[in-house]
Design a protein around this nucleic acid. Sequence first.
DNA 1: CTGTTAGCGCGTTCAA
DNA 2: TTGAACGCGCTAACAG
Lengths: 349, 349
Amino acid sequence: MTTEHQGEIAAPSLEPLQARATLADVARLAGVSAKTVSRVMSGDDKVAAHTRERVMGAAKRLRFRPNTLARNLRHGGVTNTVAFVIGDITNPFYFNVAAGIERELATRGMTMLLATTDDAPGSEAVVVDTLLAQRVRALIIVPIASDQSYLEGERQLGTPVVCVDRPAHHLVADSVVLQNRLGAAEAVRSLIAAGHRRIGFVCSPAGLYTHQERLMGYRSALLEAGITDYERYERLEPVPGPTAEESVRDLLAMDEPPTAIIAGNNRASTAAYRELYGRAQQVAFIGFDDFELADALGVSVIAYDTIELGREAARMALSRLEDPNGPPRQVEIPTYLIKRGSGEIPPRS
Amino acid sequence: MTTEHQGEIAAPSLEPLQARATLADVARLAGVSAKTVSRVMSGDDKVAAHTRERVMGAAKRLRFRPNTLARNLRHGGVTNTVAFVIGDITNPFYFNVAAGIERELATRGMTMLLATTDDAPGSEAVVVDTLLAQRVRALIIVPIASDQSYLEGERQLGTPVVCVDRPAHHLVADSVVLQNRLGAAEAVRSLIAAGHRRIGFVCSPAGLYTHQERLMGYRSALLEAGITDYERYERLEPVPGPTAEESVRDLLAMDEPPTAIIAGNNRASTAAYRELYGRAQQVAFIGFDDFELADALGVSVIAYDTIELGREAARMALSRLEDPNGPPRQVEIPTYLIKRGSGEIPPRS
DNA sequence: CTGTTAGCGCGTTCAA
DNA sequence: TTGAACGCGCTAACAG
């Protein structure tokens, strides 16, 4: 690919062409002590104007760049990096959360380290371990493993742990979640108000905390209205894949098919839309999670501010740094129903 | 929010409840020297089995976690973190690239630091500076400033710089870009083959390298077919916003409106779709960038593997670490036309 | 205003 | 197989 000189023997090119300048190098060139250079670099100290200029000049000539690693080490080994651990990086939901975190951190001069566990519960602890070894300032995590008790020690050591989207298991930690029950219940109530009595719930993959919560919200709203035979309209597929489409087909093929369908997550939302789109049979539909073009397509959804979810998580992590021993907090990000048409289709008479 | 004891006076809670254990602490508890603990932690040295066990036990008791900062500092101040600098983190395109980078890095035990410039050309150098101070191993960047010459020094110092999506200005660097011209040309040829002669090009915001390249591809394919009066069908809006919709409306209101439209970027794709969707007038349409539901909606697009774009960028950065002085490389990620219907609509007779 | 000493946590060198 | 001394680059504490 590159040259033929690559190999295991000699690798002179591994060395940079030019050594990186250190504080001492700058000091030598400027004819001052290292500490003076340090002062100039930190900015906030009193240094004679002409000394400062000499130092700045020398630094520029040598392309000096302060070594944050060494600085942090000297300061007790803490960085200003916050780690965000997610399962599947290709899920746009996580991406937006990451955007929120990054933005909030940026306002405080901190950066975000993004790591993924590839949705493998077993790798969570390994990934987190690597991050902690890098002395991240705080940890924001979408829990995937069934047990986060391994983090208890870190919390005590002063590293804030904030869980996003779902609470931790066997660990006392701050968390930011959605108003899952309320959101689902609001959607169901809206459908009931439009006259629906047979309402389906589709979710795939299902099994997570969020899905359970939404299912609870769905059920409670139905019970409120005196509807009790909802179980036959629930389709929660544990495995990922095109099963949400199948679930919808399955529901609509029933003797008494539902006249409205609610999706329990973003994947199921688009999957259900795929299946319902272009069907002659008019079925009301409300998705969970807003998505691109949903407005143009007239798809009603339960929406929420994903960016804000991330920002709030970052804020919690940072405030926890200032108050490590306060009681754990759980913030709920509001959900709201956006009516665009698909959720307002009346039941077939 | 938390307690009333917060304030500027006393902040005893700022200190962790328990000091972090160091190599020396473990050594003391295990009754060995620090170096022995170091050996056990590094794994690959010869230590007596019983000594190893004692050390491991002590480390676990003290919740010892090796300090990567110190380790890296000792090793010459290099981390195994690669920084990825983007403009707007909410653009799904960048997100997928980030996913690719993260995945590729993960296979080599490296992590990704994500930073954003908020599309402000002036902040690029500042952000990059912070990252370099953290001694990132390599830099992957979507250039936004009009000049990247400030990075020349770093390159010489051995920090690989890889540009993504567009090449750097005034800097010799590796880059990974899309087959923009070919992709656009293929789309136009396909439309011409279907009988179209009046083909519009919409792009908003426009002005970037990618847009120019795609415009060139569009023009060249038209010229190939002997069509020369394309300029009146070009709508490149420099500012972001809902101008793509306006451009489409504008085009269709012409005396001789185009019978087909091509979008120059992902924002314009969805915008154009919004405008064309539900119109009685049948207009052929091909978007640049695939998007969620495009398949279900029958939207033809010029697609490419965004994840692969990111992976390739990461691979380039890492290979450049091994061969700092090789000639700069530019890799093109292939684009391909996906025919789903919207691009195959024949011209109105 | 500036310099000196010491040490953050770890790994390398060399000796035992 | 194990340990002692030194240094990575930087800054806090104390001089001067």
